[in-house]
Every structure is written in structure tokens, then in C-alpha cells.
């Protein structure tokens, strides 16, 4: 509790371009509390996740209770309080992908990298996640590696691509 109070009063470096981005977004939205989700999107895009200090900064700027911000962040799947890793691999588990064997791909990746969905390797190089549906059902099963959709995915090819990107062998 004490540490969280300390976080709330901590100032973020104003010269950090990421902070500037969030400040500009808040100004554009007129510091309206109803733009909270939009601002959180900007912050997550800038940092890759939502560090507590950043949430505290947004909380103060929008004059919202911390509970309101925290409850909103934890409600939506898109927002993460932890780093998602330098490289991300998202396995789509939508219905079409499920029918076409997404679980087998996920099992293979979990086994290969000793990660469960939502976890990141100790060196923060790779994070594995699952998505509810990315809407690429015509190409099922689909996997997204660093924003690139890989259709008709095959576990071994996915592993090859991941290894090439992350340097993991």
C-alpha cells in the first residue's frame, strides 16, 4: 500500500518522448474522463504495456480516482500491467482456428519455449499470448508474430520464424 502511494506521487520524466505522446493525447481529448480508454491505448502503444507510474500519471491528469483507472485497465483484455516481451507471438484461438488445430500449435509452442499464454521468457525476449479471434478465419489456423499475421500456420514454421526474430534457438 505504502509503495503504491509513493508511485502516485512519483513524477515521470517530462522529456521522455513516450510521456510527451501521452500528454499530447490527453490534451487533445481535453482531459475528459470518458477518453480514458483512448488514452490507455496511446500509453500501451508507447510502452508496450501499462507501467504503474504511467497509470498514476494518467490518474492525476484526468482527476480520476485510482480505483476507476485500475478497474478499467484490468477489465479489458487488451491492456496489460506486465511487459508482453520484446517479441510477441499471439496464437488465435477463435472458432475456425480451434476447429483447425490451434490448440496443437499452442501446446507445441508452450512446450518449446516453456511458456504459458501470458508469460514472457526470463530475458524478456519472447512473450506468448492467445487471442479470442483476430478475424483471419479464412486463413485458419492463424498466428500473429510481431503484428505479422501468419495464415495456415504450422507449428514448426512458426518456431523457425520466432527463432529467427528473437535469436532463441
Amino acid at each position: 500500500m505504502k509503495s503504491d502511494t509513493a508511485i502516485l506521487s512519483k513524477e515521470l520524466p517530462k522529456t521522455d518522448p513516450r510521456v510527451k505522446l501521452i500528454a499530447a493525447k490527453m490534451k487533445k481529448e481535453n482531459y475528459k474522463p470518458d477518453a480514458l480508454i483512448e488514452i490507455l491505448h496511446t500509453a500501451q502503444n508507447a510502452y508496450g504495456y501499462l507501467p504503474k507510474e504511467v497509470l498514476a500519471y494518467i490518474t492525476k491528469s484526468l482527476h480520476l480516482p485510482p480505483s476507476r483507472v485500475f478497474s478499467t485497465v484490468t477489465f479489458y483484455h487488451f491492456f496489460s500491467l506486465k511487459s508482453k516481451g520484446e517479441h510477441t507471438c499471439i496464437v488465435c484461438t477463435g472458432t475456425a482456428c480451434y476447429v483447425k488445430g490451434a490448440q496443437a500449435i499452442l501446446n507445441r509452442l508452450e512446450q518449446k519455449y516453456s511458456l504459458k499464454p501470458g508469460q514472457v521468457t526470463p530475458d524478456n525476449k519472447l512473450g506468448i499470448q492467445v487471442a479470442r479471434c483476430i478475424g483471419a478465419c479464412g486463413l485458419a489456423p492463424a498466428v500473429v508474430i510481431d503484428n505479422d499475421v501468419q495464415g495456415k500456420a504450422n507449428a514448426e514454421e512458426i518456431i523457425e520464424t520466432i527463432n529467427a526474430k528473437t535469436g532463441i534457438i
Binding site: K32, P33, D34, H41, F75, H77, F78, F79
Partner: peptide, 22 residues
């Protein structure tokens, strides 16, 4: 922009989300 919640397809939940809430 939606933030990944299936329930937001329900109209009253979607309205809450546009208002910046859960």
C-alpha cells in the same frame, strides 16, 4: 477503439465503454 471485451458487443456495455468505463 475497443479494448478486447466480448461483452462490449452488448449495447449497454458498449455505451459504458464509450463513456470510458468498464
Amino acid at each position: 477503439i475497443g479494448a478486447g471485451a466480448f461483452v462490449c458487443g452488448e449495447e449497454t456495455a458498449l455505451i459504458a465503454s464509450i463513456e470510458g468505463k468498464r
